[in-house]
Design a protein around this nucleic acid. Structure first.
Lengths: 133, 133
DNA sequence: GGCCAATTGAAAAGACTTTTCATTTGGAGC
DNA sequence: GCTCCAAATGAAAAGTCTTTTCAATTGGCC
């Protein structure tokens, strides 16, 4: 995944690796401030600005996904499933990915009915994970 | 719908009616600032604070839905379909509701596979409406 | 090893949202 | 209708979060 950065012509910096590592180690969704805190344990000079920029970069590259919870809409989690969606535990903030299938029919039906050309979709499930139930 | 406020024990104020009217007239999703602008044409003394509070109140009551677009996650649109979802035009910001069916199977399957107790879900489709294609 | 564009981060600026609190007001009860 | 009070309001202040700026640093091609 670190290679993905190089592939797309981005430099492989200690800061980017730290942010990637933080998101990979945590199974939860994290705010930029939390990523900064944890990231500094890996690379102490990490700055806030870089965290914001890196999270958005990783999102554009598809390595990271935004999570829109009740707590706010600026949290990020690693995207473990390419083109997938996620399921969020409302108690412990754990995030589990699941593949994006079974939605195509609904999307096509809605597109036909409304005349829209659907280009993207956002699906997020929330609930309680087995441990928190 | 205005009656819904009374039903839930909330007062029917000119400010709330103005916000409701703005959201009903526009078929688009609007930011709080836009709601304020338009709302002041209906009730000129409307204040920013009240717009924020009213939008959240209407959302809790289910009259209004939040739209999470690329432009940001704080936009609101009227919820025309109870328990439905929405489809957003990326060009003109028009919002169309569609019923929440066809998703249950996917949710149940995911719940079974992951052990999560799914409590809520967020689904948003984005694309181009017939007029903007 | 040198070079240069990409990257970084501290500080400043900016944008957005919430809190505070004195004033106003809807509507229940008479 | 009138009174009354808790709910609602809004201007200003405070707070939070995010982006921009710009000089310094650095990854990686040569």
């Amino acid at each position: 995944m670190a290679k993905g950065l190089r592939t797309h012509g981005y430099k492989l910096t200690a800061q980017r690796l730290a942010v990637l590592q933080v998101l990979r180690e945590g199974n939860e969704h994290l705010t930029p401030a939390e990523v900064l805190d944890r990231g500094r344990k890996i690379y102490s000079r990490l700055g806030m600005t870089t965290v914001y920029r890196t999270l958005e970069l990783l999102r554009k590259l598809g390595f990271v996904r935004r999570v829109h919870g009740a707590e706010g809409c600026r949290a990020y989690a690693e995207a473990r499933e390419r083109d997938g969606h996620h399921l969020v535990c409302q108690a412990c903030r754990r995030v589990v990915d699941f593949p994006c299938s079974g939605l195509n029919e609904l999307i096509e039906h809605t597109a036909r009915r409304t005349g829209f050309a659907v280009e993207s979709h956002l699906l997020e499930l929330a609930g309680l994970c087995p441990a928190c139930q």
